[in-house]
């Protein structure tokens, strides 16, 4: 009888602590959806406790990134070698080498003290299209944010990126869009006015794997790719999480019976 009460109390403790922790969560998400339109929730392959990245999608997303985004955006925390690591697009060793060699990176100084350009290698990060934030802002009108972590630094993550990519509309009558700006209701940080022109249009990037290259598809692919750049250990996290959870549940079970056994003579 007492055991029943103890179980209930334990459950209550767990629920209460979860409630205390999550009671404050809506504060974060509520403020974003209060301003911009509701985000369409994509059924990503990496969602859920067993989610993994879709390798072909990451490879397509990389192509979109390379041909479209990289013209203006940097990606300073991602190395070429990452493209070949487990849990990512998993390009083969020679593929990564060839991909990296397609970029010129600055190195040096050489023996005479000069900086020089050489083909990229696995150890290098993606070279930035502009020397610094100021140069990018001066040339483009606004600084295009670094994309390494963008899927974790925006409320909604990949859903937000996807919505933003294809969410450009005509501005409502009461909104004046300044010269060099565009209207995108999802861009809440700028109250709908964004300096980035609509980046994707149907058929823009040629896919090698025969996937239809609609703007919608490309947008999803690049959003998934950016989720990977932000959280490259997501698959490892899900895998280890399952092992830890299985162990802890078993441990809690054993301890529950041990507790009951040991306390049996006290009730």
């Amino acid at each position: 009888m007492k055991m029943k009460m103890i179980q209930k109390l334990t459950l209550a403790a767990a629920v209460a602590s979860l409630a205390m922790a999550t009671a404050f969560l809506p504060a974060g998400s509520a403020r974003a959806s209060a301003e911009g339109p509701e985000l369409h929730e994509v059924d990503w392959s990496f969602n859920g406790p067993f989610g993994t990245f879709d390798r072909s999608q990451l490879r397509r997303g990389y192509k979109v990134y390379k041909e479209v985004c990289a013209t203006c955006h940097s990606m300073q925390y991602v190395h070429f070698r990452n493209l070949g690591e487990p849990g990512g697009p998993e390009f083969t060793g020679p593929e990564v080498k060839a991909l990296a060699a397609g970029y010129q990176v600055q190195d040096g100084p050489d023996l005479s003290g000069d900086m020089f350009e050489r083909p990229g290698e696995g150890k290098d990060v993606f070279p930035a299209p502009y020397a610094n934030e100021e140069a990018a802002a001066a040339s483009l009108g606004a600084y295009p944010p670094d994309l390494s972590l963008v899927a974790k630094s925006r409320v909604g993550g990949p859903d937000y990126i996807h919505a933003l990519m294809i969410g450009y509309t005509e501005a409502p009558a009461d909104v004046t869009v300044p010269a060099g700006g565009y209207y995108n209701p999802y861009f809440t940080a700028g109250s709908g006015i964004i300096a980035m022109p609509p980046p994707l249009s149907d058929g823009q990037v040629d896919y090698d794997d025969g996937t239809p290259n609609t703007a919608e598809q490309m947008s999803q692919d690049v959003s998934a790719f950016l989720m990977w750049t932000a959280e490259p250990k997501l698959e490892a996290r899900h895998r280890l999480g399952f092992q830890v959870m299985a162990y802890l549940l078993a441990l809690a079970g054993i301890l529950f019976f041990a507790t009951r056994k040991i306390w049996a003579d006290q009730h």
Partner: peptide
Amino acid sequence: MADIHAVEPTRRDFLYVATGAFAAIGA
């Protein structure tokens, strides 16, 4: 307590060892 040990000492000891060992694996 004393009588518990008298009644089923092995089961109780086994419980201690099994629980401790399982926790030690995790640690």
